[in-house]
Amino acid sequence: MSEHRIELTVNGHRHAALVEARTSLGEFLREELGYTGTHLACEHGVCGACTVMVDGVAMRSCLMLAVQANGGAVTTVEGLAEPDGTLHPVQQALKDNFGLQCGFCTPGVAITMAAVTRENEGAGAGQIEKALTAAMSGHICRCTGYQGIRRAIRQLAGATT
């Protein structure tokens, strides 16, 4: 198994490590760096639970290799809130609207929402709601029936216009 030295930042912190070529980014973040907020629920790219941002773009960390993130800036769910603990607007919206129950799918949901709201900054409410809803079709939540997630989307769309 070939090993590679990689450097990257996670939530603004610099990390360097030796990783096997086959190690997924998700596994690396959890096992090597201890960012256990990122959850692996299917490990085959369907459920979205493992989503993290790499250079601002939402990526499925079960499908991306750690070596591919070399030199990149990764944001996990641990890095969404402000350093003083103020929740990111997507976290707040999920909380306000009972958008989570068991919380296993939630890290991926929150990261995708954060990435999509950022990509659509300044867009109209309709466009933001559409983009967020479309992005959420790539996330599976077994608990909530998506009701709170949808209300959170509406709150975010309303708040951003």
């Binding site: 907020g37 769910v77 969404l80 929740l87 999920l94 989570l100 919380g103 939630t106």
Partner: peptide, 16 residues
Amino acid sequence: RKEDGRLLTGRGQFTD
């Protein structure tokens, strides 16, 4: 919900 604070910030404690 009292649970949301930790679950939304990646600080839950699941078995894995």
